[in-house]
Design a protein around this nucleic acid. Structure first.
Length: 619
DNA sequence: ATAAGTACGTA
DNA sequence: CGTACGTACTTATT
């Protein structure tokens, strides 16, 4: 084995096996000799006993020298760290989950390419299983792929094989046992990963083959910025950014949001009382809460407030007839009967008790006072980030509990009026773009339409979201006259959606709208609204993520992103660098927008404040 | 057990 | 008859 290491001129196809505990100081030399240069792609696949590192070749043989590192996970991680430090490659993985061991060890990832992420970008939907990604990239029907658990897979390796694992890996074009019947990826590895580091080489090579196809595809998505736009093409930029966002999502899940548990508990207690000692006490306080509402109606004592039908009956007995009992429906009746206000208040308390109460604190807030949920880099629709555990829907009344730990502050930055500004970019409407030079774009729009600001705002939002009811009518016609390019863009998206056609966001994400089968008018209208919104919301998500991951890279030591909330970024930073972070976040937005929206003339603005508590920032 | 419907929190 | 998401509860279905 030391002999293999000393052969620093590993020929293409050679697999170098390294014992991580006795790894050479410069693993990178082996990879360089196999063709890896700084900035190039390096596939990384973990296995229970180690990892495989396989460089993508720019020219010549597509299959170069691979390094197999075996050993304890932490020593393997350390070996990977050294490679990253020297060669600064773009790591290629099937999903950003492969970055988890690196994040856990504090290893910085220079750049990444997330095949699951680029698959979703190119093909839409939310599937990301390697077997599906591989199949689609190769033009195979993913529905026909073999499933794990099927015995006697045609083309599966036989145990009569006498060659060594390394030789087996090099067979079949270097893919070893990776590809089974009809060109599909073997399903057991797709589900659980390759069983050992030798197998991981084939798995990494398969990743590089998909990378080649994905890279070619994103590079040829038409660049909406036109031929004069700076390189790389926007599709490539989006792929890089989405990959980084997927890794950021993993990181956010590990890091968590700083929370003061005592403050949180006090806020919960203010709403629903102190933590009950036992189930009986919990039931008693619950009934007591219910009784406050029910007491307002003489015959209401038996009403189950958690049953909307019974609540509707209760309201009817109070003389209030409503089609449903949603809060916005009840709001106008606040003065009609005291039970209404009591019910609305009860609902708020019930929300805290069930979703954001003691159980939530116990489950999702760690002993270190960090609120942790699981994150995705993009949802199934237009591509926003999502988060569980209440990270994206924490009630405003609990936000005072989000507090920077001693010695640190929160830098809260949010993009102002991002969606109309994005509409100006994606539609290329020069007149609408001119309005974005104002800090408040609704005021030039209001001037242009000769209406007041609130009316202008409602009209613009109505145009982007497809709202048809309400008072936007006349102003909408004004928008059509003033900004015909932007309005036509929205209408085109809506028409495509209503017809069931896919739409593509500005950055190249494919968004499915349901297919061309005939549907009811109401369904078609809903799809139209969905598509109309998706081209704006999706592009906004792309800009936001590009901004967020660029900020992440530029942050000084000790400063970390702790929350992404669609148009808002929360950075926890040492007090001493807070002002630097503020300046940096502004600068990065300017740089990001200059690339992303090159030539559009659209201005983006961020409102940034330095606070102790999340709630201290002005909304 | 699982799905659908209702409701509500955030952007 | 504005979109997206996550969570929890009830009711109906398997």
């Amino acid at each position: 084995m030391p002999d293999a290491l000393s052969s620093a001129t590993a020929a293409p196809g050679v697999v170098v096996v390294v014992d991580a505990d006795r790894a050479p100081d410069d693993l990178s030399a082996v990879l360089e000799s196999g063709g890896l240069a700084p900035g190039h792609e390096l596939a990384l696949v973990w296995s229970p006993d180690g990892a495989a590192l396989v460089p993508a070749h720019r020219a010549g043989s597509p299959l170069g020298a691979a390094v197999v590192v075996r050993g304890q996970r932490d020593t393997v991680v350390d070996a990977v760290r050294r490679v990253l430090e020297v060669l600064r490659p773009r790591l290629v993985w099937w999903s950003a989950d492969a970055g988890r061991p690196l994040l856990a060890a504090g290893v910085s990832v220079p750049a990444s390419w997330d095949l699951a992420g680029t698959h979703r970008l190119l093909h839409g939907g939310s599937e990301s299983d390697p077997a599906v990604v591989w199949a689609v990239a190769h033009g195979l029907d993913p529905q026909r792929r073999p499933r794990a658990g099927q015995l006697d897979l045609p083309g599966a390796p036989t145990d009569t094989e006498t060659t060594s694992p390394t030789e087996a890996t090099l067979a079949h074009g270097g893919l070893g046992d990776v590809v089974v019947s009809e060109g599909f990826l073997r399903p057991d590895w797709a589900e659980h990963g390759p069983p050992d580091a030798e197998s991981a080489v084939g798995w990494a090579r398969a990743a590089l083959l998909v990378l080649g196809r994905h890279a070619a595809a994103v590079a040829t998505v038409p660049d909406p910025r036109g031929p004069l736009a700076p390189a790389p093409p926007l599709g490539v930029l989006t792929a890089w950014s989405e990959s980084a966002a997927e890794l950021l999502a993993v990181e956010l899940g590990v890091r968590g949001l700083p929370l003061d548990r005592n403050v949180a508990q006090r806020l919960v207690a203010d709403r629903i009382g102190p933590r009950p000692r036992d189930a009986a006490e919990a039931a008693a306080t619950r009934t007591a809460r219910d009784d406050v509402v029910r007491a307002h109606v003489p015959t209401g004592a038996d009403t189950d407030l958690r049953n909307p039908a019974q609540v509707r009956d209760l309201l009817a007995r109070a003389g209030i007839t409503v089609p449903d009992t949603r809060a916005w429906r009840l709001e106008p009746f606040r003065g009609a009967h005291p039970v209404v206000a009591a019910l609305i208040d009860w609902r708020k308390a019930e929300r805290i008790a069930t979703t954001y109460g003691y159980a939530w604190l116990d489950r999702d807030v760690g002993p270190d006072g960090r609120l942790r949920g699981s994150w995705t880099g993009c949802d199934g629709a237009a591509g926003r980030m999502t988060a569980s555990a209440g990270l994206h829907n924490l009630p405003a009344e609990l936000r005072p509990a989000v507090v920077a730990p001693p010695g640190t502050v929160l830098v809260r930055a949010d993009l102002g009026q991002i969606e109309p500004r994005v509409l100006a970019v994606v539609s290329g409407d020069r007149a609408f773009a001119a309005a974005t030079t104002a800090d408040d774009l609704y005021s030039p729009v209001a001037d242009r339409l000769a209406v007041d600001r609130p009316t202008a705002k409602i009209a613009v939002l109505a145009a982007m979201y497809g709202q048809t009811s309400g008072a936007a009518g006349e102003a909408l016609r004004g928008l059509d006259r003033a900004y015909p390019v932007a309005m036509a863009h929205l209408r085109r998206a809506a028409d495509a959606g209503a017809a069931g056609h896919d739409v593509r966001t500005y950055g190249g994400r494919l968004v499915h709208t349901g297919g061309p089968a005939a549907v009811e008018e109401s369904v078609a209208a809903a799809r139209g609204r969905f598509a109309r919104n998706a081209v704006v919301q999706g592009a906004a998500a792309e800009l936001f993520k590009m901004w967020a991951v660029s900020v992440r890279t530029a942050l000084p030591p000790g400063a970390e992103i702790v929350l992404c909330l669609h148009d808002e970024l929360l950075v926890q930073a040492p007090e001493s660098v807070a002002n630097d972070v503020v300046a940096l976040v502004h600068e990065v937005l300017e740089r990001t927008a200059a690339r992303w929206a090159a030539g559009s003339g659209v201005r983006f603005v961020a409102d940034i404040s330095v606070v102790r508590r999340w709630s201290d920032a002005k909304g």
